[in-house]
Design a protein around this nucleic acid. Structure first.
Lengths: 196, 196, 196, 196
DNA sequence: CATGAATGAGCGTTCATTCAT
DNA sequence: AATGAATGAACGCTCATTCAT
């Protein structure tokens, strides 16, 4: 049970999937980049779909963990929201390959969608929780609107970061302080959600 | 030239592309649903990619027009933003097939991305324009942040609506008043961007 | 609807299937021998299995027809049985490729078996009918034993001819009068079934 | 050397080969059913083909022994033939897995065929011997026809039993007295070969 | 304008076999 | 004697595209 091989495959797979998307990604390319034979992938994963789902589940788990920790590091709901925001933006910006897959593939096939719903719901509920603890805001009144607000915030952050990533790729540079610009942009929008 | 044939192909193509995504969509299926022979598609379009791009350009154009008109119907920037918001949410919710393609395929392959950049920039700039005319807000200070804010708003709206569409599909019903819920949710967030 | 192409594929397929058996037969080889592209086969047949079943159904139909006509050419049951015997032996010996498939593949996979049962039952019932009309023989007493007798006759003929075919292949010659030897051998055995 | 392991592999192999046929049988499945690692099979056998041939040789040997003993238990040729018949039918019916392989795989690939020829010839010659000792029958005149008659008898028995086995599987029951029905059916046919 | 039979490069997957432990 | 992770050649099937009619 060489954990190393699976790790190699995982690393190669994220890259290839992110570069080409699920459909265009070739198992041959993943094998080559992982420096294993094609059969080796199939020894560890049932198929392309399973590899992808395993990948995304693992990715979403790590991602959600980071964001959750950043949120729980604070007491004040406003600080929690800011912590969550910074963590999410930073993580996505630094894991561009993952960020691309998140937005482009999750909405793809019905089956894959189902697999991610639960994972994404975790994240959205994290946001929802912070909003709820925000207390006397007008959003507290309706559970539905709280959820919707969380979804909107999720969308605003994800799309903003992805846009930045493509911008960086076009200009072939990844400026660290773009993160601060994004935070400055998103904070007022999102923290409005806590205002009464 | 029979405009009718092209129209049939267009209609079939939106459906098929939206159901399966660009890669999984089969020209055979499009031809069958359009009730034309496969060769006929190739008589009118150079290939799959061109068909898709033509489709999305046409879709984005209509979409942007609707949103633009809704925006220009008002004078006050705050009203403009609200009009834009309502128009965008309503249009996307009622054109679910188009909404799915917008989020799932735009981030896909490099080439397709390029084709959409310009179209999406139009929309984002529409938002940007409203924000700029919002005047004395602190977002006016930086052109970059204005653009980023517009992108974030674009993301918040798109993801929220898409989420609602999937929710509706799961429950197999499309409630009209969900639009009002979304608007109630998004308005405070987005109009916060105009507040000083 | 070029009937010719399908005909070419059919001809090539019988040969390849008979040479290598169902599993070892390669679609590439069939395509090559049929002088069509591989895709062409899949344009006309859903897959390997369907091609094979179509092939065998068609083969069994022709075969059964020939045997049936030879049987019905006579009035006397004994003559009918002799006619049937001669027709079956002759046909199988001259269609060695088909004969091989008949014995080696029919017992193969459960699915394929099902597909052939009906066809083989037709043949066996043909034999059964002749035996029944044989009249006062002791086999008439039991329907079951009539059926079993027919099956045994079917087996005796098939295995004998197949054995001769392999013998001929080993010696690389196909002697016409081997058919007479087989007939002389099988007739006493089989016509015993009509004796009282 | 642990004889036990080889025995386990053997038992598993007969089952798997009979269930799926040589080509479709997977070494993985054999290993799993034998409860050994895949490598273990290759430690004891050179490969799939060798395992199969070893299996069938062993099976044919047991089978031929049983039939030979049943034949030699009698003095009168007619009794010998009846004993042989009963032994063969009973053995095959009770070893259905082996019976299936006998008919479906022997005619398969050229190589496997060669391996079985000798073994099957033994059986056929056993029958031939009895027929020859049958004495003054008209079949004695020609060595060739004696051999052919033996082959035909071999075929009649094998196909009849196999047919019964499939019938039993369809109805999911294995009636003991079906053996008597088969014997009653085959005896008149076959013993006709001894009649003058 | 329109057709649909034909194409073939390309890809996911399988599985007998090997070998270091 | 036994293991099981790793291999890679092989194969069935797909589908965008072409072209003669």
């Amino acid at each position: 049970m060489k954990q190393e091989t699976v790790e190699q495959i995982f690393r190669a797979a994220v890259e290839i999937f992110a570069e080409s998307g699920f459909e265009r990604a070739k198992m041959d390319d993943i094998a080559q980049r992982a420096q294993v034979a094609k059969g080796t992938i199939y020894y560890h994963f049932k198929g392309k779909e399973e590899l992808f789902v395993a990948l995304m589940n693992s990715g979403m788990e790590k991602f959600t963990d980071v964001v959750r920790r950043a949120t729980e590091a604070h007491q004040d709901p406003a600080d929690q929201l800011r912590g969550l925001l910074r963590a999410k933006v930073t993580y996505l910006y630094h894991h561009g390959t993952f960020a691309k897959l998140l937005l482009s593939e999750v909405w793809g096939s019905k089956e894959r969608q189902q697999a991610f719903r639960a994972r994404i719901r975790d994240l959205v509920e994290l946001i929802e929780g912070v909003l709820r603890r925000g207390g006397d805001s007008r959003f507290t009144s309706s559970r539905d609107r709280l959820h919707e607000t969380a979804v909107a915030i999720f969308g605003a952050i994800s799309v903003t970061v992805l846009q930045e990533i493509f911008r960086a790729e076009d200009r072939e540079l990844l400026e660290g302080d773009r993160i601060e610009v994004m935070l400055d942009t998103l904070e007022p929008l999102i923290c409005g959600a806590l205002r009464d």
